[in-house]
């Protein structure tokens, strides 16, 4: 394990996706910041780079809903892509970032800060089901070649 304070930078071709070390990461490419029994989620720089400019974000769930991991919770449309969105962990949806529903551009401008998506209360507590920055980096590395092939195949 390397130093915890240094961010890791995953190179997506020429584009550097910076992964802050103090965050945890979910397999659906969201970062996770846990505090006081809650976890805040947002898109990792990797996800933002794949999507590019976000046009439209829509949630199909409400604050207070109890979500299962990988439950379908919403939809996003960007300049380059669209996707359904899924719950990164199991737990109760505590807060949704309402600002993004009016203007989702903060996802592109400040994905680790004002571009956060929602807070959840862990069903299992702690960091259950998320990865450290090193683990996420390895996850990205292991899948990068395949991801590229998929993207090129689709475009």
């Amino acid at each position: 394990m390397g130093s915890v304070s240094e961010p890791l930078t995953f190179m997506m071709g020429k584009y550097p996706a910076v992964l802050p070390a103090e965050l945890r990461y979910a397999r659906n490419h969201m970062w996770c910041r846990a505090a006081d029994g809650r976890a805040r989620f947002g898109f990792s720089s990797y996800a933002v780079r794949l999507m590019q400019d976000v046009y439209f974000l829509d949630w199909q769930v409400n604050v207070g809903d109890v979500l299962e991991v990988k439950q379908s919770i919403g939809h996003i449309e960007t300049s380059k892509a669209q996707s359904d969105l899924f719950a990164p962990i199991a737990g109760k949806l505590a807060v949704i970032n309402e600002e993004l529903l009016k203007d989702p551009s903060a996802i592109n401008v400040d994905n680790h800060g004002t571009g956060w998506l929602f807070d959840m209360e862990h069903a299992e507590g702690g960091d259950a089901g998320t990865m450290s920055v090193q683990e996420y980096y390895q996850f990205l590395e292991a899948n990068w070649e395949n991801t590229q092939r998929i993207l090129k195949g689709q475009i």
Binding site: H29, K70, T78
Partner: peptide, 11 residues
């Protein structure tokens, strides 16, 4: 547009 659903955790 590219559909990223499966990259983002879709079944």
């Amino acid at each position: 547009k590219i559909d990223l659903t499966r990259l983002f955790g879709g079944e």
